[in-house]
């Protein structure tokens, strides 16, 4: 089992039992207390505010229930979509399963048959505020690329071993120059 970390993510690579053929790569989000702390503070402020209004100002139960409701929504928004880890399960001659594990326990799975994958590529993505590396799959008969990691943006050193494993599984040559050429 291979494992290394940075400030935000931990990368683990193991082989699934009983068959050593199945290759599993995990990108695990390291615990960051800041987010949880901010959510707790916000929820606490909302609840205390509601209680104070209810007790001191003698305002209806409606306001108190609203503060409870807003707190619940806030917690759900912060934790329901929060990702614990994303995994890539490489099954040679069969396909690739992409998994997203949420804090709530929900797991979103996507399966891509090996025959549909034309080539895995490492690309630089640019958003209006940042740039990051992403691992994508070029699929046969589809114009759009499929992102391997839908929610997380792990660093390149964590993406390279996964990209290499996907290249081997798909039988495509490892080529570092994966960007579109223009001009």
């Amino acid at each position: 089992m291979v494992e290394f970390s940075n400030r935000r993510f931990t990368y683990t690579h193991d082989h699934k039992w009983p068959s050593e053929e199945i290759d599993v790569h995990h990108i695990i989000v390291r615990k960051r207390n800041t987010k949880g702390f901010l959510v707790c503070i916000s929820a606490f402020v909302l609840l205390v505010n509601g209680l104070l209004l209810f007790l001191v100002k003698d305002i209806s139960v409606g306001i108190l229930s609203w503060s409870f409701f807003l707190t619940a929504i806030l917690i759900k928004l912060m934790f329901w979509k929060s990702v614990v880890k994303e995994s890539v399960v490489v099954m040679p001659a069969f396909g690739v399963q992409l998994e997203t594990h949420y804090v709530s326990g929900r797991i979103a799975r996507r399966f891509v048959p090996i025959g549909k994958i034309l080539k895995p590529v490492l690309l630089e993505c640019v958003t209006p505020i940042t740039c990051y590396w992403s691992l994508s799959l070029i699929l046969r008969g589809e114009a759009d690329l499929m992102l391997v990691f839908k929610e997380l943006h792990p660093p390149m050193k964590m993406l390279v071993p996964i990209w290499k494993a996907l290249c081997i599984a798909c039988g495509s040559e490892e080529s570092s120059d994966t960007s579109i050429k223009d001009g």
């Binding site: 690309l123 630089e124 209006p128 960007s179 579109i180 001009g183």
Partner: peptide
């Protein structure tokens, strides 16, 4: 035309989505 593109001679261009 958004994202990173490469032109002749390895000229790297950032087309920022603004």
């Amino acid at each position: 035309r958004t994202g990173v593109r490469y032109m002749t001679g390895g000229l790297k261009v950032y087309y920022v989505p603004w």
